[in-house]
Design a protein around this nucleic acid. Structure first.
Lengths: 190, 190, 190, 190
DNA sequence: GATGAATGAGTGTTCATTCAT
DNA sequence: TATGAATGAACACTCATTCAT
């Protein structure tokens, strides 16, 4: 593993545990087994390290998400896939998920920051995906009639909240995923 | 308004906009129209200022929530009340809601910090409330049969995610509240 | 006891335990059961509190010392009296003794500060007293011949070191006083 | 000279002149011709700077003292060596001597602080050395009979007080050293 | 006499970042 | 690539002191 990768891994661990502001460049360097200036050789600064990690994490996530686009099958099975994918994502990349969800609250207020842009891009994509599912479902009679936009909001919120609770380890049951899907099925399907 | 209240208000504004670490005591003092040492006369430090605001916000929220405890009526109407109360809370105290949800990510990892304790207390209460509603609903035949614990997780996540999206202004529809309630009704009721 | 006396007592305790710089006016006020501004009502500032204590301690000491001036008796018995008086002083007013010996090191460098002046006055008086004793002793044949000035220095140092060790609780024997006197007797007497 | 050494020298000068609490890190940096943060690059803080100086001074002193251990010769000549070594030490390293004696009064009260430990170590070694001398001297008949422990206290006090007076420039004679040794000879020798 | 509220001037310390090599 | 040394700019916090009452 290159030293650059060392830096990224160490930083990811530390950002996830302590947040962006709570992590110093010295800690990152120590944890990575390098000296501080090397961080500035490979990155423009602490912020770019953070952004790189975020971007890498998001890219991995994005690949998973994009794979859903060409899915065939019924409307609900596509909703179900979206939900179960998000459960998997948290399990497979908890540090990155924590970062996106929790490490940069102040940056979320800055409309120009990558952090905000990532969240918006993700939300937009999920909204589009869900909108299409729901439209199709209603059209085909698989779903009961319902207003589309606010239902998209509701499902987005459910996914968002589920990830957050899972990342923060607030969940109390082991079968939340199945119950969540069943819950949505009853809410959506005719 | 006393200078102490000035400090609290200024700090609340700044913490909400910039996060805890992004806000300096000098900024708080300036914004409040006082000198820095006065912060230390009225509070033990920056952390206590934050904690005071958090606690005050949570207390207001807690009053609203506790009022639901003695609610009579059907199981779903009690669930509905819980949901709509949370929508109202975000609208009525957005700064405080933002603080609880987003300003102290690192503190959420510290099990001894008030921040974490508040979240846990809130989650615990909501879980208990929902558990009772669902049990009652199933027993009376108002709800379809369903596993209780994971459904509680699901509903908690929905509320959590809804608040978060609303606080971060990610919602896209004006009728999300109604759709959310209708969604749950279909998911729960027989 | 008046509040002014309370302040002085509290301050004396704290200065002895923590030194001048290590003691805050707030600590003094708390320990004295008053508020800080009262200190400034009764004294011009922290320095005057310290100076007052020092002066009071020194005055008590001075009375004891001055009483030796009119002592009749042999040369050595007067030296002995001086030594045993200093042992008593440490035992009877340890806090004040500690203050003079140890609480204001930086102030000892300032020739204008009371602290330095007190030490000089004390040293001067002791020197004068010892000089007279030794002169008389040599003249009367009670003492062996010896150079006066450096012997005065030596005896002063012995008294100084003895007080210091006693104040700092470095002494290891219970009969140091007697041995010290016997030591001097052998060194001085014919 | 390296900048680290600059810092140590500047700090030593300032601590000796103004005491520990009276010296600021900014003063040290200015006097050393460096910026404040460099102090924190080379040391963990102001306290470690002080401790380093103290330790270095004590180490130099300790070498001188330890050299006395293997001294051959009569009991009194060994006592004499101890005394004259202490006179030399003050003359050769007055700043360090002042530090040990006078710059950290509050720290002397803290049993865990290096300051106290150094004083105790020194006192212990001197006590042991003197005890052996006196025992030997009495056994060989070179010294008059006398109680050992309190005489050790007395000689320790004499050395202590002599150093202190010399450091604080309270001595009045140029031949104090010789008189002090002669004084002890009369007190000890048969 | 006595105090609650307030402050000017610092204090030790930290940290992201840079420079010389 | 890589680092030891160094720093500008800030930071949370403290303290002796004062003011209005």
């Amino acid at each position: 593993m290159t030293k650059k990768e060392n830096i990224l891994q160490a930083a990811a661990r530390l950002f996830a545990r302590q947040g962006f502001d709570g992590t110093t460049t010295l800690q990152i360097a120590s944890e990575a087994g390098v000296t501080e200036p090397l961080i500035y050789y490979h990155f423009t600064g602490k912020d770019e390290v953070f952004t790189s990690i975020l971007k890498a994490g998001f890219d991995k996530y994005w690949v998973r998400i994009k794979a859903l686009e060409n899915l065939s099958g019924g409307a609900f099975s596509r909703v179900e896939k979206l939900i179960s994918t998000h459960f998997s994502v948290v399990d497979e990349m908890p540090a990155e998920a924590f970062l996106i969800i929790s490490a940069c609250p102040a940056k979320l207020n800055d409309p120009d920051h990558l952090c905000r842009k990532i969240v918006e891009k993700q939300q937009k994509w999920i909204s589009g995906y869900l909108r299409r599912c729901i439209k199709d479902g209603i059209a085909s009679g698989e779903f009961v009639p319902m207003p589309i936009a606010p239902t998209v909001d509701t499902l987005s919120a459910l996914i968002n909240g589920t990830m957050r609770r899972r990342v923060l380890r607030l969940e109390q049951s082991k079968t939340t995923k199945e119950a969540c899907i069943a819950f949505c099925k009853r809410a959506l399907c005719a």
